Amino acid sequence: MSETATQTPHGAGAPVHDLSGLELTMLLVDDDRPFLNRLARAFEQRGFTITSAENVGEGLAAVASAPPAFAVVDMRLGTGNGLEIIEALRRRRPDARIVILTGYGNIATAVTAVKLGAVDYLAKPADADEIIGALLRKGDAPAEPPANPMSADRVRWEHIQRVYEMCERNVSETARRLSMHRRTLQRILAKRAPR
């Protein structure tokens, strides 16, 4: 399980991952169908056999029927949580390598995901090479810094969105918890996400 610095057809300058000798079964769970389909195609091109799921129920059923060697699971799945799938996969296949993806990153959730058995936690959108790098990273090897990290404005916006969702989309309660004026919050929520 090593990386070489040679070029790959998947992107200019992207690393080639040595997948020889590995069982290339992968479960992808994400409720964003276009993103899920793009990831599935990218991993299939790299030799993986993919099982896709769009919600917690489908993910748990896939784990129960054929636990994969690798899994990429979205943290927030409609009314469910990807952590349930991590727990189920860990029980069925302790050696599985799991990466959590999310558009709503926060340290507490990352710590929980890793404690439950995820090997890494990546912000969406992550590409296939970045995900494979995380899945194959050995023990204490430091993670590579992201090539395109979120801007400070994007991090702020993600945090506000996460709190807003936690408050069940109640603007007044969200504003109170963020110590922010309600009208200011409404203006932020009406804008598109910064890059």
Rank of each mutant, 00 (worst) to 15 (best):
D74L: 04
D74M: 11
D74P: 12
D74C: 07
M75T: 06
M75L: 15
M75P: 05
R76E: 11
R76T: 10
R76L: 11
R76V: 09
R76P: 06
R76S: 13
R76N: 14
L77E: 02
G78W: 01
G78R: 03
T79C: 03
T79W: 06
T79D: 13
T79N: 10
G80N: 05
G80E: 02
G80I: 07
N81S: 13
G82P: 09
G82V: 03
G82S: 09
L83M: 11
L83D: 01
L83F: 13
L83H: 10
E84H: 12
E84S: 13
I85S: 01
I85R: 02
I85Y: 02
I85D: 00
I86T: 08
I86A: 06
E87R: 14
E87Y: 08
A88Q: 05
A88I: 02
A88L: 08
A88V: 02
A88D: 03
L89H: 03
L89R: 00
L89I: 11
R90Y: 00
R90L: 05
R90F: 00
R91A: 14
R92V: 00
R92H: 03
R92S: 14
R93G: 13
R93Y: 01
R93E: 04
R93F: 02
P94N: 10
P94T: 10
D95E: 12
D95F: 00
D95N: 06
A96K: 07
A96N: 06
A96H: 08
R97I: 01
R97M: 00
I98H: 06
I98S: 10
I98Y: 00
V99K: 03
I100M: 15
I100E: 06
I100N: 09
I100H: 11
L101Y: 04
L101H: 07
L101K: 09
L101P: 03
T102Y: 01
T102Q: 08
G103L: 04
G103A: 13
G103Q: 05
Y104K: 11
Y104C: 09
G105A: 10
G105Y: 03
G105M: 04
G105H: 05
N106L: 07
N106R: 14
I107A: 15
I107Q: 12
A108L: 15
A108G: 15
A108D: 13
A108T: 12
A108H: 12
T109H: 08
T109S: 12
T109K: 07
T109N: 15
A110T: 04
A110I: 11
A110V: 10
V111H: 01
V111T: 09
V111I: 15
T112I: 05
A113S: 08
A113Y: 00
A113R: 03
A113G: 08
A113M: 02
A113H: 05
V114K: 07
V114I: 15
K115M: 07
K115V: 06
L116W: 02
L116R: 13
L116S: 12
G117M: 02
G117D: 04
G117L: 03
